[in-house]
Design a protein around this nucleic acid. Sequence first.
DNA 1: TCCTTCATTCAACGGATGTAGAACGGTTCA
DNA 2: TGAACCGTTCTACATCCGTTGAATGAAGGA
Lengths: 190, 190
Amino acid sequence: MSEPTPRPSRTQQRIETQERILSAAGRLFAALGYDRTTIRAVAAAAQVDAGLVMHYFGSKEQLFAQATKTETPLVTGETPEEVAEQLLGILRQSLIEEPIASLAALRSMLTHPDAAAEVGNAHAERVKVSKAIPGVDGNLRAAVVSAILIGVVLGRHLVKLDELADADPDEIVELLRPAVLSLTKADRPE
Amino acid sequence: MSEPTPRPSRTQQRIETQERILSAAGRLFAALGYDRTTIRAVAAAAQVDAGLVMHYFGSKEQLFAQATKTETPLVTGETPEEVAEQLLGILRQSLIEEPIASLAALRSMLTHPDAAAEVGNAHAERVKVSKAIPGVDGNLRAAVVSAILIGVVLGRHLVKLDELADADPDEIVELLRPAVLSLTKADRPE
DNA sequence: TCCTTCATTCAACGGATGTAGAACGGTTCA
DNA sequence: TGAACCGTTCTACATCCGTTGAATGAAGGA
């Protein structure tokens, strides 16, 4: 599959370089977090000079913003059971692969305000499902589920807690199904 | 309540200063994490020169180690129900107060190896309860519970996810009881 | 009182980092 | 072919950090 309009080699080259930088930045941010990731290190990993990174992305903050940009999957379920299954599906996907951009934001959320905001937004997006979670405490229930998902993904990919890191993703999902269901289903009157 | 043996004022003064430094360090590490906490900032918060911090604690690493030192509460329950209640009790306590030393370690666990090790140990301690959790997957179940607790405490005190930060601790505990119980009780044959 | 001890401060070094701007060299196009 | 363009590198600056070692001055003991 080739480019429809084969761009002049200069533009082409530039785009490839930018992607190489962005990819290296994502990997480093995910592995080390915002503070310990150096522009020089990103440049080296992308086999490029540090000045070029600045030239393309303006600042470290903007580079981070681009590298962690990701669209949050929507949860559209209408019943508690549907919502639970969708959330478990998102979790499963996050356990199987290593979502670099998300991991970069997660890794930095405790020490970099922008990253915390990013994670907070994804969280808020997930909390919106509370419309489908009955009970006066729908918001809180949704938030607890969200915190659980964050904790499990964190434990598996970033802190690498032994048992979680090695376990079969499906097994983890199965274990969490009752827990998530107990939270999406209200046990108190509306 | 006065000192049993009123120490000479010099020693007394030194101990008070050390405690002041340690307290300031704990607060700053918990608020900013390891990297963003500066020895100079700790010194300023303790109204002391930076050199003195080095003189007493040797290095930033050692200061962090002292400031995050904490004994993990033991879980001794023998039945799944007992274990669940004890874990929920620990969670409840961590939601009500702000355990500075633990929060300092948690805040830094994603970016500082030593902090990750510290949290990993507390986690491992909690996983030991898997002897009381039936099923071939006892270890994994215990690890999942541990990850859940971390996620919730993190969300409340550090990331400050709106709904979690404001909620009544007891309400959160009540919401999590079925979830935790579903994990400490096996639903598969041994 | 004099000397020692020691809690504390001061000044400085070496290294790393984000960032800015000049310089270079190949590509593109008239 | 020559000039403008631009992707890229080089050099440098200002700042901040952990850490060190000498200096200071008050307290304690003989």
